[in-house]
């Protein structure tokens, strides 16, 4: 079952150029001036129900714009999309009963009210009966560990605490799909982990599909099975996360320390030497071209090894490389 189907989705923003004030309003009425920005360009992809899909891309790539079209907030300039069988911008209300949304930069919880009050209000908005709402709140407070936070006005919560409440709120009506736009923005490592765990749990237990955007490769690694990388409003890469790692995480970083001094002319074919110190070296090589065996043999032939660390480069770097290699075009037309 597909839960999202997108074909050639396109969005051009016409940014109005207008000075402030009444006079300018009147002038703009008769002679508007626009600047066009192509935010999303001929985007096509599919998402299966229950899938964990990551949407990654640099600032201005069009991630938020895409999510907003898929929830019916924005009308597209062209193309089609179906989410759970509904055309979002035509059947917005019907769709809203079945999806949950979180915009990391735009809180949904009422600022001056304790989260529990917004939860109750959402219960009414989603037309749940009161008993059901209560049961669901109990479950979610446990899953997101927010029991102690519920009674505090949201304005007094830390960002991490608030975000947990936000994500919990988006799940109140048992949606089949949640769309999260940068749920981990501004959170520290622990808070991110917390949210990721809870989201993963909801996916496993209730089969909620998750489409999430992020700048953070960590979200991708921890949560997503599949990734779509977009830049300048277009897909530049689309694959399983495991494949992404297998194909692109082929280089290894190695750091060694020796008991003796290292010869200054340390060299090995097929290996990039990043740093040679008095007692240690740091190098990088690609397992596709140079075997691990060969490197290890050479390293131990140089002297007595005291310590060795082998690591993968951060996924961040891999993604940055994909951005760089992708065909780039100007995203703006004047």
């Amino acid at each position: 079952m597909t839960s999202i189907e997108v074909h050639d989705l396109h969005k051009v923003f016409q940014t109005k150029r207008k000075a402030a004030g009444l006079g300018a309003s009147v002038r703009a009425l008769f002679k508007p001036e626009y600047r066009e920005v192509e935010a999303v360009r001929q985007l096509s992809f599919q998402m299966e129900s229950g899938e964990l899909l990551g949407f990654i891309g640099p600032n201005g790539a069009g991630k938020s714009t895409t999510i907003k079209m898929l929830t019916g907030i924005l009308h597209p300039t062209g193309g089609d999309a179906k989410v759970l069988g509904y055309v979002p911008w035509k059947e917005r209300q019907k769709l809203a009963f079945h999806i949950g949304t979180v915009f990391g930069q735009r809180p949904q919880l009422w600022y001056h009210l304790p989260a529990i009050d917004t939860f109750t209000l959402f219960g009414k908005i989603y037309e749940l009966d009161d008993r059901e709402t209560k049961k669901r709140i109990d479950f979610l407070t446990e899953a997101f560990e927010i029991r102690d936070l519920l009674e505090t006005p949201v304005r007094k919560l830390s960002l991490g605490q608030r975000m947990r409440c936000e994500v919990a709120a988006s799940l109140l009506h048992r949606p089949k799909l949640i769309l999260l736009d940068e749920p981990s923005i501004g959170l520290d490592v622990v808070a991110k982990q917390h949210i990721r765990d809870a989201i993963r749990r909801m996916n496993q237990e209730e089969g909620v599909g998750v489409l999430l955007t992020s700048h953070d490769a960590g979200d991708l690694e921890a949560l997503c099975k599949r990734v779509i990388i977009i830049n300048h409003g277009q897909i530049v890469y689309e694959d399983k996360v495991s494949n992404l790692k297998r194909k692109h995480l082929t280089s290894k970083l190695v750091e060694v320390r020796y008991a003796q001094e290292v010869p200054a002319n340390f060299h090995l074919d097929g290996v990039e030497v990043l740093k040679v110190g008095r007692y240690g070296v740091k190098l990088r090589f690609d397992t596709a071209h140079t075997s691990v065996d060969k490197v290890m043999a050479h390293l131990s032939s140089v002297g007595d090894l005291v310590d060795i660390t082998i690591s993968d480069p951060p996924l961040e770097e891999v993604i940055a490389k994909i951005y760089r290699e992708a065909p780039t075009r100007m995203s703006r037309r004047e």
Partner: peptide, 13 residues
């Protein structure tokens, strides 16, 4: 200010 987003993501008029 783009604050209609909130209302547009909930299932009410």
């Amino acid at each position: 200010q783009g604050r209609l987003d909130y209302y547009l993501s909930l299932p009410k008029p």
